[in-house]
C-alpha cells in the first residue's frame, strides 16, 4: 500500500512489491463494510480488491502508516479479517530529527524479521548490496526522468505512465523503460501547471492537454514525492531509513507547511508553472489540512491555487472539468 516503504529491503528478501492505489475500477461496497463512509477510495477500493481475492499470488500485504485511514486498514486486516496474506505494518515517523531516524531504523529491523518469516529467506550481505544497487539505480532513473522532462518528446500521459510503472515493475525493467523514452524538441504545450495530491488518473492528463495546458511539474505522492536521495551507509537499515527520511516535502510525512510552501514556490518558479492544481481523492485528511494554507501562501506569491476532489474510477463531472478549464483560462 502507498506511499513510502523500503523497496531494497523487500528485494533483499527476494520479494517483489506490487502497489495498490485504489485500484480505480473496483466497486467500493465490499471494502466499505469495514470503514467509515468518508474513508478515501484508495483504502476502501484496495480493501474490496483484497477481499475479492485480487491478491491471490501475493505472500504479504505491507501497510505503511501513511495516514489514519491506512493505519485503520492495517488494523482491520490484521486483527479482524485474517486474509490469506500476512499483514505487515510499518510505522513511519512524522519528523526528520535524529530520533526519527533511530525510530525508523528500529521499525525497519522489526519489519526485516517478519520478512524473513514471510519469504523464508535471510539475506546475506551480498543480497543487501545487490538490492540497494538495483533500487538506487531505479531511484536515480526516476530522478533523471524528472530532470529530462522538458527534453522528452512525449505527452504528460505517457510520462506519468512510465513514472507510475515503478509501482509494479522491477528496478531493472523500470530503468530500461525510462532510458528508452525518446528525446526531442519539446512540443508546444500551453500553460504550465503544477499538480499536487496523492494520485492522478491518466485521463486527467489528456483533459488538461485538451484545455491548452500541461503539467510543468508535480507534487504527487505517486510521482515526485518519491524521488528519493540515494546514500551509501554500510548499515542497510540506516541506509533504508535515510532514503525514506530524505524524500521531498510531503504532508503525509509531516513536512511543516512553511517548508512545503517554500519548496513548491521554488519548484513552480523553476519549472515555469503558473498555478497549482491540488487534485485529491475525497476526504484525504493529510492533504486537506494543508490546502487552505497552500492557497493563502502561494496566492500571496502570485500563484493561484485550485483544489479539486475526485472519486477514483469515476469520470470527472462536467462542472469539475469546467473548474479546471476556467482555472487554466485565468492563467492564460
Amino acid at each position: 500500500m502507498p506511499i513510502h516503504y523500503p523497496r531494497a529491503m523487500l528485494r533483499a528478501h527476494r520479494l517483489h512489491p506490487m502497489e495498490l492505489w485504489g485500484p480505480p475500477h473496483v466497486e467500493r461496497h465490499e471494502g466499505s463494510r469495514h470503514f467509515q463512509a468518508y474513508t478515501c477510495d484508495i483504502v476502501v477500493k484496495a480493501m474490496s480488491f483484497i477481499r475479492s481475492g485480487g491478491l491471490g499470488a501475493s505472500k504479504a500485504i505491507l501497510v505503511p502508516h501513511t495516514c489514519d485511514a491506512l493505519q485503520g486498514m492495517g488494523s482491520v486486516l490484521g486483527d479482524f479479517l485474517d486474509p490469506d496474506q500476512r499483514v505487515l505494518t510499518l510505522y513511519l515517523p512524522r519528523g526528520r530529527r535524529g530520533s526519527d531516524h533511530e525510530f525508523l531504523q528500529s521499525e525497519l529491523r522489526r519489519l526485516a524479521t517478519t520478512l524473513v518469516e514471510v519469504s523464508g529467506y535471510e539475506p546475506s550481505r551480498a543480497d543487501w548490496d545487490e538490492a540497494f544497487e538495483a533500487e538506487d539505480a531505479a531511484d536515480r532513473a526516476l530522478a533523471d526522468l524528472y530532470q529530462r522532462r522538458d527534453r522528452l518528446a512525449i505527452s504528460d500521459r505517457d510520462f506519468y505512465t512510465v513514472v507510475r510503472s515503478r509501482e509494479y515493475l522491477t528496478a531493472e525493467q523500470f530503468c530500461q523503460q525510462a532510458a528508452a523514452l525518446p528525446e526531442g524538441d519539446p512540443p508546444e504545450r500551453g500553460v504550465g501547471l503544477m499538480i499536487s495530491g496523492i494520485v492522478a488518473e491518466p485521463a486527467l492528463f489528456d483533459q488538461i492537454e485538451a484545455m491548452g495546458a500541461h503539467i510543468a511539474g508535480d507534487d504527487l505522492a505517486c510521482g515526485f514525492r518519491r524521488v528519493y536521495s540515494v546514500s551509501a551507509q554500510a548499515d542497510p537499515f540506516e541506509r533504508a531509513a535515510y532514503r525514506l527520511l530524505t524524500s521531498p516535502a510531503d504532508p503525509t510525512c509531516g513536512t511543516p507547511i512553511q517548508a512545503r510552501v517554500e519548496t513548491l514556490e521554488a519548484r513552480m518558479r523553476a519549472l515555469g508553472a503558473r498555478g497549482l492544481l491540488i487534485y485529491d481523492p475525497k476526504f484525504c485528511e493529510p492533504e486537506l489540512f494543508d490546502v487552505p494554507l497552500l492557497r493563502k501562501h502561494l496566492g500571496a506569491c502570485g500563484f493561484p491555487v485550485l483544489h479539486v476532489e475526485f472519486e477514483m474510477g469515476d469520470r470527472l463531472p462536467h462542472q469539475t472539468l469546467s473548474r479546471i478549464e476556467a482555472f487554466v483560462e485565468t492563467l492564460s
Binding site: G299, P304, P317, Q319, T320, S322, R323, A326, E329, T330
Partner: peptide, 11 residues
C-alpha cells in the same frame, strides 16, 4: 475584466 479567482459549486 479577467477573472482573478473563482469558486463554483459542483455536483
Amino acid at each position: 475584466g479577467r477573472p482573478i479567482d473563482f469558486m463554483m459549486n459542483d455536483k
